[in-house]
Design a protein around this nucleic acid. Structure first.
Lengths: 281, 281
DNA sequence: GATACGGCCTCCCGTCAGGGGAGAGTCAAT
DNA sequence: ATTGACTCTCCCCTGACGGGAGGCCGTATC
């Protein structure tokens, strides 16, 4: 017969836990002194304690453990419990992984935005852009509604999105209402049959690359106009011809968590260009 | 101004939760009527509620959310929190996956034992056995001590174990004490440099396959002797020669969870054999 | 003006698996 | 007899709410 402290050392369960298990009817002492209330545990309780410890390590609830112990003879019953527990654990693992991945995405996004911010000189630049695949929703109306388009793409392509959202502008000039634009997300190309395609009103295709004039705009979207003036002045001065649509990449905007300070929003204006006259008419 | 019920509908948070967040200082109503105690929420609280919801979806604790909200301006602070949260989530995911895998192993083991039990006729049989890799600990002493050997292998090769434990008997006959045996576990062969090898006193090598006489023994280990008599009688009758060591595979023994009923233990005795005289002397 | 109904308030208790601590009684050795 | 280690019960705490009781408030209806 062990007293509770000795039994605690033997089983590795704390005294508190043993008392709790007693109260819960999970692990009853072999004998309880009626006068003193002292609990005494026998040798055979060690085995039961071991079982409980094992099942707890598998994160069984005490309720389940009690049931399992009660139907110790019935093998298939135990298997049922094991199956259910496995199911639960797999779901928990998946949920945690999903969250971890979401966090990773947010962190990387934030990091890249930071990086871009530090590297930026906020001058008009020229660079080459690689082609990449996008999912896009063409919309007509006000720019403010583009969120719906992004949401739609997010819902359908959640996993596959691999870059920052962008807007394609099909209008030649700024329009307050009745604008013609397309909300897009870069996506990973499925290696399977991924021809240019469309699901309902979401178009999936490759955006062409090429020579590109860019300008990083810092500040709220209302002030984009000024940056457009700058970039257009540059393009005109060089005598380039713009290939429609122009692109607006949202490097850092109202984040998923914080709306952020609009003064720190970063937007890259991209215009694919060719030398004037070099284009087949 | 929303009353709490309206605000609840707008934000998707329950009334209970909103009151709780108020109490915790997480989301304060813009105005509280002193007479009636009614809470009134302003438009700008909707945004805060959204942030809280997002962070809760990422399983941030309310404590963390409070801190994040307090230092809303500080970007790097937020990044720290995100990193820590990601770390936590990854750990949780790993823990759950580990448990799920352990459960899968137990379930499969139990299933196979069941299957074996159903298929068994408990007669001596002959079959061909493929070679397979093992980790083994050679021991001298009493069979009862073999658990230590299995434990040692389990500790070192936990992940890689891919089958049921077995014992190799190097003695020609049964010995109570001073027996010479080896506790083994089948392991997955690493594709990397996995020559026959040994780590401390654990030997890693391939067990040969070949023609094999087997008998499934059902019951406690004390009764193994009778089964050995049966199988040896068979071997002698056929005039086979036994290749040492003989093997005892523990199909179903005292499980990780339940000790189980020894009457249902299953042990397969395996003896590699060749026709007499066919062996190079 | 009275009433009914729905909304809102506070306060208390429950979850799950124990942990922390207070105050009092018990065991074994000195 | 005393001491020190051990044990007992009882109560409160965790996190993020949910359930419910009992009572007040606002608005519409009779």
């Amino acid at each position: 017969m062990f007293r509770i402290g000795e039994f605690s050392k033997v089983t590795g369960l704390t005294v508190k836990t043993l008392r709790f298990y007693h109260e819960q009817g999970l692990l009853l002492p072999t004998y309880v002194d009626e006068q003193t209330g002292y609990r005494y545990y026998g040798e055979n309780q060690v085995e039961t304690a071991r079982i409980i410890t094992q099942l707890r390590a598998l994160e069984f609830s005490l309720e389940d453990i009690k049931n399992v112990l009660a139907h110790q003879e019935d093998d298939s019953d135990l298997l049922d419990y094991l199956e259910r527990q496995r199911q639960m654990m797999q779901e928990k693992a998946q949920a945690s992984r999903r969250i971890a991945r979401a966090l990773t995405k947010i962190i990387n996004h934030e990091r890249e935005a930071h990086q871009t911010m530090n590297d930026a000189n906020f001058n008009v630049e020229e660079k080459a852009i690689e082609p990449f695949w996008i999912a896009g929703v063409r919309m007509k109306g006000r720019y403010g509604d583009c969120g719906k388009g992004f949401a739609k793409i997010g819902k359908r392509f959640g996993r596959r999105i691999c870059g920052k959202p962008l807007l394609l502008h099909y209008d030649a000039e700024y329009k307050e209402t009745d604008a013609d634009f397309e909300a897009c997300m870069p996506i990973q190309r499925k290696n399977s049959s991924d021809q240019a395609n469309s699901y309902e009103d979401v178009s999936v295709r490759e955006l062409p690359g090429g020579r590109c004039v860019t300008l990083l705009h810092k500040g709220p979207y209302e002030e984009l106009g000024r940056s457009y003036e700058r970039i257009l002045a540059y393009v005109q001065q060089r005598g380039y011809e713009i290939i429609s649509p122009t692109r607006e990449v949202y490097i850092k905007g109202p984040g998923m968590i914080f709306r952020g300070n609009p003064k720190n929003y970063l937007t890259e204006i991209q215009m694919l260009v060719v030398d004037q006259g070099s284009r087949a008419s």
